[in-house]
Amino acid sequence: MTDKFDLPPSATHQAFGLSWFFPFPFPFFSPTLKKMPADVVVELGCLPPISPDATQTTEWAFASLDKVHIDFPTVAKILVSNGNRVQIEKYADGTQESLSLLLMGGAASIILQQRGFFPLHGSGVATARGAVIFVGQSGAGKSTTLGSFVQQGYKMLCDDLAAIRLDDNGVAWLYPGVPLYKLCPDSAEALKVPTSDLSRVKAELSKFIVPATGCQADEALPVHAVYELSTHSDPELKIEPQNGSDKFNILLNHTMGKFSFRSMGLHTTHFRCAIALANTIRIASIRRPENGRIEPYQLVKQIEADFLA
């Protein structure tokens, strides 16, 4: 098997600032608007065995310098190489839905790592000041906060995987991701999103998939701020700017696939990226009351007041 393509096929989709070729219908990524060679080629077939020099970095991932092998039980084995190739060998009982989630999340984040991006686990919106990203543990309210902003007329940039890249001038850009966001039933109700026609993600607590076609920004924006969401026992929402190593820690803790960086020889690149980001953008924590809901409008107004200040 060769490792490089002489002539990459024409792209079928675009996401994360890259053009992609899919050999099967993939309705989650936006279709390409112009003819261009694909940056990343997705293929179906049989995978070579995991290379002996690979290090197991998580329960399912084995990483070496140019390759990451994911073996996700009941879904698929995926080999991501050189930032330009995703090979898939499906398990017989794997559903297209689980495979799609794996491609949009895990596989895409490895492609981004291999290409020198800084992949953050977070949701982003386009604002007058630039991109604003929400990170937080699972259930902290990333997608709900994103949904609240979209409801107030903001355009989304991404949900779940935030593709950040530093340019030669040290400016961090957030590229538009997949034009959809996932909402748990409670959040969908609070945001009054009609759900009868929406499909659901079984693997993620039956979250609804909300299409955001038409309300996604189509250009990358410089990153203005990262907010880390969590809850506290106070009745009020509290926003606190972070400083020094606390800023770095937030970026480190919410880096997607951070356990693979060392095996891929990218840990110093990632470290320098995190430092550069920490020194150029606003990073703050948002603590929401754990009991009692904040109206989406109020949530947006309070966060707006912080990033517009």
């Binding site: 400083n243 020094g244 190593s245 606390d246 800023k247 770095f248 820690n249 480190l252 060392r262 840990h267 110093t268 470290f271 320098r272 430092i275 920490a278 020194n279």
Partner: peptide
């Protein structure tokens, strides 16, 4: 170790262990 400042605090990565350290001013 390699390190860089964030604001006035030093953040470092230990290249042998991959541990990170943050030092106050």
């Amino acid at each position: 170790l390699i390190g860089n400042k964030v604001d006035n605090e030093l953040v470092m990565i230990d290249l042998d262990s991959d541990n990170y350290y943050g030092l106050d001013s």
